[in-house]
């Protein structure tokens, strides 16, 4: 805007005021942001760089200096058991994601019908999300414990033979997946329900006038309008279920023979049980790389600032 400033006093005064405001804003911004940036650089930027460096070294983190060993740590991730650990992580994340999203969608659609006590149902589905994963996963073991667990007690009562769940990798995988869905389905339900309630009733009424059936409306109206929310739920769900930890640590410990082991648990064990910081850092880099596509999409959605109203 090219506005010539007249020679009279008042606008010049205002101009100086504006420039003064700018100077004040810049000063205040840096007073606020300097400590934040300083802290952030120490506890984010520096660790990320350090982690990258450590991932090429052999180091116990306790004493001595990191010893450069090139790509050795990364190459471990191409050999067993690490290949199986990555496969398990993808398997769990995939199963949890697909079933959790589908289930949440279904329940949200049901809740969006005119049902009485919608808040109560929503609360009952959301409550598991509020529990500590460490506590509920540990307690879940009370259900599957081989000799005195609830499931086997029930089997015994029904006159069946008991099953030693913990030595059966597929049963343990199933339990971990079911537990994760139980604890995670509440958030997506709330999100889907909110998005559904954001769709105007008139859209459905118009479709009904045109003779659309319930399924038509679900498929041609509800599903497309909910697509942005589905994408958001799936991306955040992917990032979340990729970092599944407590359920595996406390229900199976990764066993039997690594067949339920996942990346975050292995990284934790490498770093804090086996004190092999280099290998653990490499693992966290592998995880970051595998998640990068999802993380960037997530950040894009965030910085756009909107999910549902596209």
């Amino acid at each position: 805007m090219a506005i010539t400033v007249p020679a009279s006093g008042a606008p010049a005064e205002r101009k100086r005021g504006l420039r003064g405001a700018r100077r004040r804003e810049t000063l205040e911004a840096w007073i606020i942001l300097t400590p934040i940036l300083l802290y952030f650089s120490i506890f984010f930027l520096f660790p990320v760089i350090a982690n990258f460096y450590i991932s090429f070294t052999r180091w116990n983190g306790i004493r001595g200096r990191p010893e450069w060993i090139g790509l050795t740590n990364y190459l471990r991730y191409f050999r067993p058991p690490y290949t199986m650990i990555i496969t398990n992580t993808l398997l769990f994340a995939g199963f949890v994601l697909v079933f959790q999203t589908a289930l949440a969608f279904l329940i949200a659609v049901l809740l969006n019908q005119e049902v009485r006590g919608r808040g109560l149902y929503r609360a009952l589905f959301y409550v598991p999300t509020l529990t500590a994963a460490a506590v509920t996963a540990q307690v879940a073991f009370a259900f599957i414990s081989p000799y005195d667990g609830v499931l086997n007690a029930a089997l015994k009562m029904l006159g069946q033979n008991i099953v030693i769940w913990t030595i059966n990798a597929n049963w343990m995988r199933a339990f971990i997946i079911i537990y994760s869905i139980w604890r995670g389905v509440g958030g997506p339900i709330v999100l889907f329900l909110a998005a559904l309630q954001g769709i105007h009733r008139e859209v459905y009424e118009a479709a009904m006038v045109d003779g659309a059936s319930g399924w038509d409306m679900l498929w041609y109206i509800t599903a497309p309008l909910l697509k942005p929310m589905v994408i958001f739920v799936m991306i955040t769900g992917m990032i979340g279920s990729f970092q599944i930890f407590e359920a595996v640590l406390l229900m199976s410990g990764g066993g039997p023979a690594n067949r339920t082991n996942v990346m975050l648990l292995q990284i934790y064990n490498d770093a804090f049980v086996n004190t092999n910081m280099g290998l653990a850092s490499a693992g966290s880099m592998v995880m970051a790389i595998l998640l990068l596509g999802f993380s960037i999409t997530n950040m894009r959605i965030m910085s756009r600032g909107q999910v549902a109203k596209d």
Partner: peptide, 18 residues
């Protein structure tokens, strides 16, 4: 600041612990 959300937490946990 926002770029930190591109990385899983474990990437900074290990160096922070050390």
């Amino acid at each position: 600041l926002l770029s930190s959300m591109m990385l899983p937490g474990i990437v900074f946990w290990i160096p922070t612990y050390i």
